[in-house]
Amino acid sequence: MSVNTSLHVSNTSRLPPAVEWTAPSFTRAAQARVAATTLLFLFAAVSNLALLVSVSRGRGRRLASHLRPLIMSLACADLMMTFIVMPLDVAWNVTVQWYGGGGLCKLLCFLKLFAMQTSAFILVVISLDRHHAILRPLDSLNAHHRNRKMLQLAWILSALIASPQLFIFRTVKAQHEDFTQCVTHGSFHERWHETAYNMFHFVTLYVIPLLVMSCCYTCILIEINRQLHNTKESSLRRSGTDMIPKARMKTLKMTIIIVLSFVVCWTPYYLLGIWYWFQPEMLNVTPEYVHHLLFVFGNLNTCCDPVIYGLYTPSFRADLARCCRCRSAAGSPLALDPLPAQQGSEHRSDPPAP
């Protein structure tokens, strides 16, 4: 998968001949992309770090033990996207060409794909956990061990899938121009080889996670509908959600919205990528700002996860409010007590979900 996700021709494996090629510049569209990405970086860094601190040290520790590693892993994956993908994208658009040398070219291209892959796979693990919680509630005793194994597998698979980046990316200097770029030039003998490689990562980054998550939540909705139908047949005056613990339903709604935000944010960008892989001439018919806009919109997903979690988790909102009060009163850095001294009504409304 091409690492410079702006989809410029200068960063693909087949560069045009030097006589027809002019070095790209830091255009207004690229400047707008840098400004937007910088704002997303600041918000994503603060919100995801706050989420990680809340779950590990604050009131968020009241979350069920098998759910904490999932939320912490999701926050860590978002932080990898924040501190690797976004700064790399900003710096690369500002400098236009590559100044980091061959070793850094390979390493950062690997870390970028690794971060994106991990983020997608952790959403799959969360979906599988919700599937087990709703359809097999009696297996909740094994949930912690099962989730730990799935998370380990997600991180290992992400590293393996991203490892080819260490071999196919290299620095190439343009002929007759003082211009160096980090590209896959010379790594693929045929155009279709590169297309197949990109399609493989499209399948692992988007298609497979989307299919697994869709299957999980479809089965969950079918089960909820079945329980609701059985309730109506037995003439019991209770809703389908009463058949499932409220805390579990609350967590289910939160994870569904998190998955939907992933789909909404990244689908346009991946569709643009498919169009480019099969019809490279599309660069001549689509405005440059479209490529920049869709990538920035995809990065918005990193900011959505902590916001969605905060909307469904009073403990996280309480930690943020307490942090703001402490900083306004003393001007000191964030310092959360391991657990709150008093359990008010707000915290009783945020029970651990099995």
Rank of each mutant, 00 (worst) to 15 (best):
Y312K: 01
S54R: 07
T38D: 05
T267V: 02
D129C: 02
L153M: 06
A75H: 00
I220D: 05
S10R: 03
Q227E: 11
G273N: 08
R148N: 12
S235W: 06
E223W: 02
Y99C: 11
I222K: 14
V85P: 04
L272I: 11
H201M: 02
Q342R: 15
L157D: 03
I122W: 00
H185W: 12
I220P: 08
T251K: 05
C215D: 10
I274Q: 11
P137D: 00
N198Y: 01
E346P: 08
A335H: 15
W277P: 03
A133I: 01
K106G: 07
W266D: 07
A18C: 09
Q31F: 03
C105D: 05
R325G: 05
N198A: 10
H131G: 02
P352N: 01
L205H: 13
L141Q: 13
K173A: 12
T286A: 13
C324Y: 11
H131I: 02
E223H: 13
V19L: 08
P245K: 08
T241H: 09
Y289E: 09
Y276K: 14
T12S: 14
V9Q: 15
F202Q: 09
T118D: 10
D242L: 02
T184E: 08
E223C: 10
K149Q: 10
S119R: 14
R348M: 04
T241W: 05
T313N: 05
Y206P: 06
A321F: 10
R237A: 09
L283Y: 03
C265G: 06
P17E: 02
C219T: 06
L272D: 03
E177Y: 08
W98D: 08
T218S: 13
L260C: 13
H144E: 15
P245W: 00
M213N: 14
S235R: 14
V96F: 00
V263C: 09
V183F: 06
R322E: 15
H176I: 02
T180Q: 05
M72F: 02
C326S: 15
R57I: 10
F179E: 01
N301L: 06
E233W: 07
A18M: 04
S328N: 12
Y206S: 12
R130G: 01
P333F: 01
S140I: 10
L311G: 08
R226D: 08
Q181H: 10
A335F: 13
P16D: 06
W266R: 11
H132W: 09
V90H: 00
F200K: 08
H66V: 01
K232V: 10
S328K: 12
G100T: 01
R327G: 05
L52V: 04
Y269K: 12
L141N: 13
Q117D: 14
L74E: 09
S187F: 01
S2W: 11
S2K: 11
E177T: 14
